[in-house]
Design a protein around this nucleic acid. Structure first.
Length: 856
RNA sequence: GCGGGCGUGGCGGAACCGGUAGACGCAUCAGACUUAAAAUCUGAAGCCGUCAGGCGUGGGGGUUCGAGUCCCCCCGCCCGCACCA
C-alpha cells in the first residue's frame, strides 16, 4: 500500500500553479469579475491560526468563484506601518524597516505553503514609498477639498507609547495597546472631516445587504445621529448667551435648570473667581471616564449662581449648574434639564430639590393625577402644562418649538452626530510622513505635488524617547515652498488606519506609478465583492475605509462610494488553556502530555496540570498552536480542512489535536480510496454504460445531490455542511465494490465529483487525485461540476406516519403519490393499526412527500 | 442600563418554509486483522425500560393535526455601546 506524501505533493502542485500562472488576474471586460479580499495581515513575525482561518475561507471563495466562471481578483499584501516595529527597534535594536521586511519574508513563505490562489504579482507593502507616496497626494487633494484641516485640540496622550490616540483607541480610559491611563494634552493635529459624510455613511448602511446585521448596527450606533434643536438662552445680567442642544424641545416648559460641562468655557471663567467651583471642576476631571466611575457616578452639580431666561417667558429664570454628567465633547457642552422626562435630569433634580413638572402625559393616564416619582417618563403622550403646546403630541410639539425658535432667531433645528472628525496625526516614526511644511511666516504649507514623495528617512536612531524624526539632524530642515525661507517639516506621521483605507484600490493596479491606481482598473474591479476578516474591525477600519472611498470619489479618483459590497466576519480560533497546578504558570499545549493514567501533566516534569477554559489563542495565555508546525506535519490541506469542518465560519472554532488528526485521517482515506479503487476504472471521459445496477443508480443520485448541495453551501458560507456532504458521499462510494453493472463507471463519476468538490478546500489533494485519475489538465483550471437536476431528486421518498402527532412508522413511497393512495398505505401499516387501537379516525393530514398524520 | 446574538447527545455541530430531532465529525464501546501495538476495516450507541413503550432541543405556558422552529413569561451565557441631552 502506497502512502500519500503530503510535502512533496503540496510543493509539486504549488509549483504547477505558479508555472501556469493560474491565479494571475487580468482585466477582461467581457467576463464578470469577482474581487475576493481578506483583511491584509500586519507583518508581526509569523502567521497565526487566525490568519489560517481567514485566508482559508477567502481561498475557498476565490477558487470556487473562479471555477464557476468569474474573473477573480485575489491579492495579498502587508499592512506594514505601525507601532510594533518601533517597539522591536527599542527592545531588540533592530531597525523597524529591517524588522518589517524580514517579517514579511517569513510570513510570505508561510502563506505560500498554504497553497492560496493568490496573484502574488500584486503583492504590496504599505511601508514602501511606492505605496505611501500616493496617499500623500490624496491627503493634499483632501486639503484642497476642505476634507482635511488642522486644529488645536485636546488629545488622548498615551504616556507609555508617547503618542496620541484616537478616541476609539481609548478603552475605558486606557490606551488600547498599552493599557496605560490616558492623559489629556493640547496639540495641533491634522483632522479628516469624516463628519462631512456622516449622513451618507449612516444612510448607505441600508444598502449593504451583504454585511452582517450587527456590524451595520455597530456603525449606526457609532455614528449616532440625533435630531433636535440648538438654541441660545439669555444669561440674566450678562450680555452673552448660553447655547444648548436638545432632542426634546417639546419639554421646554418642564425645564427646571440648565447645566454646563465642567470643561465648558463659562465654567472656566467662573472658576477663576471661585475656588470652590474650581475645586469641584478639578474633582470632576479626576473622576475621568473610567469604567467604574461611569457606572457608579452619582449626578453631582455646583450651582453657579447664574440664571438663564426661559426662551418663551422673559419672567421665568432657571438656575445654571456645572454638572458632572454633561460632556463638553457632545453638542454644545450645555443642556437644559427637564427632570420629568429624562432620567439623568430627574436624578439630578431629586438630589438638588429642583421642581419636577410633567409636561408629556401618556394617552391613557389621568392628567390631573399623573406624577413622576423616581422614573422619568420618556414615552409618547399629550403635552400639558405647556401653554401653546398643550394638546399636541410629542412630534408636533418638537416641530412647533423648533419653528418658533427659528422665527425668533433664537435657535434652529439641527442634526447632531456622536461621530467626531478623525484625528490622523501620530507622533511616531514608522508611518507615512504628513506632507506639510511649517513656516514661521506662512504657517502650515502643503508640500508641492512636484516635491512628493516626502520619503521617510531610514537613518534614524531610537536612543532617545519621543519621535526619531524630530531628532534627525537634517531631515526636517527645509525651505518654505511659499516664501523660500528656512522652515521645518511636519514630523508627525499618519495614523496607520490610513494605509488600510485604500489598499483594496491599490490592488487593482499595484504597480501604477503616476497614481495610486488606474481609473480603468478600479472601475473594473471595485467594489470588493467579498471582504473577509475579524469582527474587531467592525467600526474603525471599515468606517474609515468607507469614508476614504467617499473622499476619493469626491476628489474624482473613482466612482464607487462603498468599497465592500459583501462582508463576512469570521470567528476566532480558540484553544484550551493550561496552568501548572502548583505554580499557576501558564503552559503551552506543546508542554502538555497525557500520562499513563490519562491525566494531563507537564511533559518535562510530569507535574499536574490544571485544564482551564477554552479561550482565544493568545501569547499571554500561551494557548497558541503555531500553524507552521501543523502545516509541516500534516500539510496545508489538513489545516485548511480543519478550519472548515464542524464550526460554522462566523462562530469561534476550538483547535484540538483530535480535530487535526481527524482531518488528516480523512485525507488519507480519500487518497487510498481513489488510489486503489476496488475495480479498474474506465478511461477519463468514457460514456456511462446503458445498464446500471440499482446500487449504481442510487449512487449517481447521491453524487448529483451532493454536487448541487455543496455548491449551494459554498455560496452561503456553510463550509462545515459542505464538508459533511462530501464525507457522506465518500462513505457511500467506499461501500461500492464495483461488482454490479456499470459500477466502475459510476465510481469514476463519483470519485471525480468528490475530487472536484473538495478542490476549493483541499486544492493540493484534489489536484493530485485528479492527476491520478488520469487527467493531464490542472484541476485549478477546470470548471465547477454541474449537477444533473433530474438525478438530484429522488423518486422514492420516506414518509413519516404519525398518530396524533407521534411518529409510529415510516413508509417508502413513490414521490408525488396521490393523497388517497398514501393515506391508504399509511392506514394499512401494522404499527399504525396497533397504535390506532380500533379507535375511529377523525381526520388524516397528508403533507405530500413528507408526513401523514392520523388524528383519532 | 440600552442594543444584538445564543442555549440541541459526553463534545463540535445538522435539521430548507412549522412536518421522521441528532446528518457529518470527535470521543467511547465491541469485533476483525496482528505475536502485540499502531494504522486500517466492520458494527453499536440521545436518555429510561427486558419488551411493549415512555421521555427528550435551558425552564414554564400558549397557538397548531403537528413546535428545536411561531407567540408570551422566566433563567443562563456571549458580544457591542455606555451619562451622547
Amino acid at each position: 500500500m502506497s502512502r500519500y506524501n503530503v510535502k512533496e505533493t503540496e510543493a509539486k502542485w504549488q509549483e504547477a500553479w505558479e508555472r501556469r500562472a493560474c491565479f494571475r488576474a487580468v482585466e477582461d471586460p467581457s467576463r464578470p469579475k469577482y474581487y475576493v479580499l481578506e483583511m491584509f495581515p500586519y507583518p508581526s513575525g509569523r502567521i497565526h491560526m487566525g490568519h489560517v482561518r481567514n485566508y482559508t475561507i477567502g481561498d475557498v471563495i476565490a477558487r470556487y468563484k473562479r471555477a464557476t466562471g468569474f474573473n477573480v481578483l485575489h491579492p495579498m499584501g502587508w499592512d506594514a506601518f505601525g507601532l510594533p516595529a518601533e517597539n522591536a527597534a527599542l527592545e531588540k535594536k533592530v531597525h523597524p524597516a529591517k524588522w518589517t521586511r524580514e517579517n514579511i519574508a517569513t510570513m510570505r513563505g508561510q502563506l505560500r505553503t498554504m497553497g492560496l490562489s493568490v496573484d502574488w504579482e500584486r503583492e504590496i507593502a504599505t511601508c514602501d514609498v511606492e505605496y505611501y507616496r500616493h496617499e500623500q497626494k490624496m491627503f493634499l487633494d483632501f486639503l484642497k477639498a476642505g476634507l482635511a484641516y488642522r486644529k488645536e485640540s485636546w488629545v488622548n496622550w498615551d504616556p507609555v507609547d508617547n503618542t496620541v490616540l484616537a478616541n476609539e483607541q481609548v478603552i475605558d480610559g486606557r490606551g488600547w495597546r498599552t493599557g496605560a491611563l490616558v492623559e489629556k494634552r493640547k496639540l495641533s493635529q491634522w483632522f479628516l472631516r469624516i463628519t462631512a459624510f456622516a449622513d451618507s455613511l449612516l444612510n448607505d448602511l441600508a444598502t449593504l445587504d451583504r454585511w452582517p446585521e450587527r456590524v451595520r448596527l455597530m456603525q449606526e450606533n457609532w455614528i449616532g445621529r440625533s435630531t433636535g434643536v440648538r438654541f441660545r438662552f439669555a444669561l440674566a445680567g450678562r450680555p452673552d448667551t448660553l447655547e444648548v442642544f436638545t432632542t426634546r424641545p417639546d419639554t421646554l416648559f418642564g425645564a427646571s435648570f440648565a447645566a454646563i460641562s465642567p470643561n465648558h468655557p463659562l465654567a472656566a471663567e467662573l472658576a477663576a473667581g471661585n475656588p470652590d467651583l474650581a475645586a469641584f471642576i478639578a474633582e470632576c476631571n479626576r473622576l475621568g471616564t473610567s469604567e467604574e466611575a461611569i457606572e457608579t457616578a452619582e449626578k453631582r452639580g455646583f450651582d453657579t449662581g447664574l440664571t438663564v431666561v426661559h426662551p418663551f417667558d422673559s419672567g421665568w429664570t432657571l438656575p445654571v449648574y456645572v454638572a458632572n454628567f454633561v460632556l463638553m465633547e457632545y453638542g454644545t457642552g450645555a443642556i437644559f434639564g427637564c427632570p420629568a422626562h429624562d432620567q439623568r435630569d430627574l436624578d439630578f433634580a431629586r438630589k438638588y430639590g429642583l421642581p419636577v413638572t410633567p409636561v408629556v402625559i401618556p394617552a391613557d393616564a389621568d392628567p390631573a393625577a399623573f406624577t413622576v416619582g423616581t422614573e422619568a417618563y420618556t414615552g409618547p403622550g399629550v403635552l400639558r402644562n405647556s401653554r401653546f403646546l398643550d394638546g399636541m403630541d410629542v412630534e408636533s410639539a418638537k416641530q412647533e418649538v423648533g419653528r418658533r425658535m427659528e422665527e425668533a432667531g433664537q435657535g434652529e433645528r439641527t442634526t447632531q452626530f456622536r461621530l467626531r472628525d478623525w484625528g490622523v496625526s501620530r507622533q511616531r516614526y514608522w508611518g507615512c510622513p504628513i506632507p506639510v511644511i511649517h513656516c514661521a511666516d506662512c504657517g502650515a504649507v502643503p508640500v508641492p505635488e512636484a516635491d512628493l514623495p516626502v520619503v521617510l528617512p531610514e537613518d534614524v536612531t531610537f536612543d532617545r524617547p519621543g519621535n526619531p524624526l524630530d531628532h534627525h539632524p537634517t531631515w526636517k530642515h527645509t525651505t518654505c515652498p511659499s516664501c523660500g525661507k528656512p522652515a521645518v517639516r511636519e514630523t508627525d506621521t499618519f495614523d496607520t488606519f490610513i494605509e488600510s483605507s485604500w489598499y483594496f484600490a491599490r490592488f487593482c493596479s499595484p504597480h501604477a506609478e503616476s497614481a495610486g491606481f488606474e481609473r480603468g482598473a478600479v472601475d473594473y474591479w471595485m467594489p470588493v465583492d467579498q471582504y473577509i476578516g475579524g469582527i474587531e474591525h467592525a467600526v474603525l477600519h471599515l468606517l474609515y475605509a468607507r469614508f476614504w472611498t467617499r473622499a476619493l470619489k469626491q476628489c474624482g479618483y473613482l466612482s464607487v462610494e462603498e468599497p465592500f459590497a459583501g462582508l463576512f466576519t469570521q470567528g476566532m480560533v480558540n484553544h484550551e488553556t493550561y496552568k501548572d497546578a502548583e505554580t499557576g504558570a501558564w503552559l503551552s499545549p506543546a508542554d502538555i502530555t497525557r500520562n499513563d493514567a490519562g491525566a494531563m501533566v507537564r511533559a518535562d516534569t510530569g507535574a499536574a496540570v490544571t485544564v482551564g477554559r477554552v479561550e482565544k489563542m493568545s501569547k499571554s495565555k500561551k494557548n497558541v498552536v503555531d500553524p507552521a508546525n501543523i502545516i509541516d506535519t500534516y500539510g496545508a490541506d489538513a489545516a485548511r480542512l480543519f478550519m472548515l469542518s464542524d464550526s460554522p465560519p462566523e462562530r469561534d472554532l476550538e483547535w484540538t489535536e483530535a480535530g487535526i488528526d481527524g482531518a488528516w485521517r480523512y485525507i488519507n482515506r480519500l487518497w487510498r480510496m481513489v488510489d486503489e479503487p476496488p475495480v479498474a476504472l474506465p478511461a477519463p471521459g468514457a460514456a456511462l454504460p446503458g445498464e446500471l445496477s440499482e446500487r449504481a443508480v442510487a449512487t449517481r443520485k447521491l453524487v448529483h445531490k451532493t454536487i448541487a448541495g455543496v455548491g449551494d453551501d459554498l455560496e452561503k458560507f456553510r463550509f462545515n455542511k459542505a464538508v459533511a456532504r462530501v464525507r457522506e458521499l465518500t462513505n457511500a462510494l467506499a461501500e461500492i465494490d464495483g461488482s454490479g453493472a456499470g459500477e466502475a463507471a459510476v465510481l469514476r463519476e463519483g470519485y471525480e465529483a468528490v475530487v472536484r468538490l473538495i478542490a476549493p478546500m483541499m486544492p493540493h489533494l484534489a489536484e493530485e487525485l485528479w492527476s491520478r485519475l488520469g487527467h493531464t489538465s490542472l484541476l485549478a483550471e477546470q470548471p465547477w461540476p454541474r449537477a444533473d437536476a433530474a438525478l438530484a431528486v429522488d423518486d422514492t421518498v420516506t414518509i413519516a406516519v404519525q398518530v396524533n402527532g407521534k411518529l409510529r412508522a415510516t413508509l417508502a413511497l413513490p414521490r408525488d403519490m396521490a393523497r388517497e393512495a398514501a393515506e391508504q398505505a399509511a392506514l394499512a401499516d401494522e404499527t399504525v393499526v396497533r397504535a390506532l387501537d380500533g379507535k375511529p379516525v377523525r381526520k388524516v393530514i397528508v403533507v405530500p412527500n413528507r408526513v401523514i398524520n392520523v388524528v383519532v
